[in-house]
Amino acid sequence: MTCPTTEALSAYADHMLAPTEQMRLGQHLQGCSACQHRLAELAALQQALRTLPSPALGLDLAPRIEGRLRPRPQPRRRPPPRTRPWAGWVPAGLAAGMALASGVWLGGLLLGSATASTPPAARVRVFDPVPPGGLCAATELCRPLKGLP
C-alpha cells in the first residue's frame, strides 16, 4: 500500500475509515516510519487541543436571561364538540319533547293558513306513517281516531 493521503490518515486517527481500510492502513503504518511520524504529529495536536485550559464565563447566566424569557405559548387545547346552544343546560327528555313540539309547529306552518281552522288531527296527519294516497297495511292503525273527522 502506498502512503495514505492526509485525509485518510486523519480519518484513521479518528477510527472513521471503513473496517478493511482501517486495517490496511494500520498494517502500512507498521512498516512506514514517515507515516508513523505524521500520525504521531496528529495525535500530539489532538492531545494539545484537548488539554487547552477552558476560558471561563465567570458568571451564572440563568438569572440574567430569566427576565428576558417571553412566556411560551401553551399547547393548543382541542375545541369542545359542537352542540346546540341550549343543550347544555336543558335535560335530555325535555330537549327531545321540545324538538318534537317545534317540529309539529313547523308542520302547521307548512300547511299554510287553510289549516288554521282545521282540527288538530288533520295537521298531525301530515306525519302519518302512510303517505297520502298510500295503502295502509294495518287498517286498525290507519283508522281515524275517535272524534276526528
Binding site: T5, T6, E7, L9, S10, L42, L45
Partner: peptide, 9 residues
C-alpha cells in the same frame, strides 16, 4: 472528513 483533515494540517 476532508475539512477536518485540512484543518488539522
Amino acid at each position: 472528513k476532508s475539512r477536518l483533515a485540512r484543518a488539522r494540517a
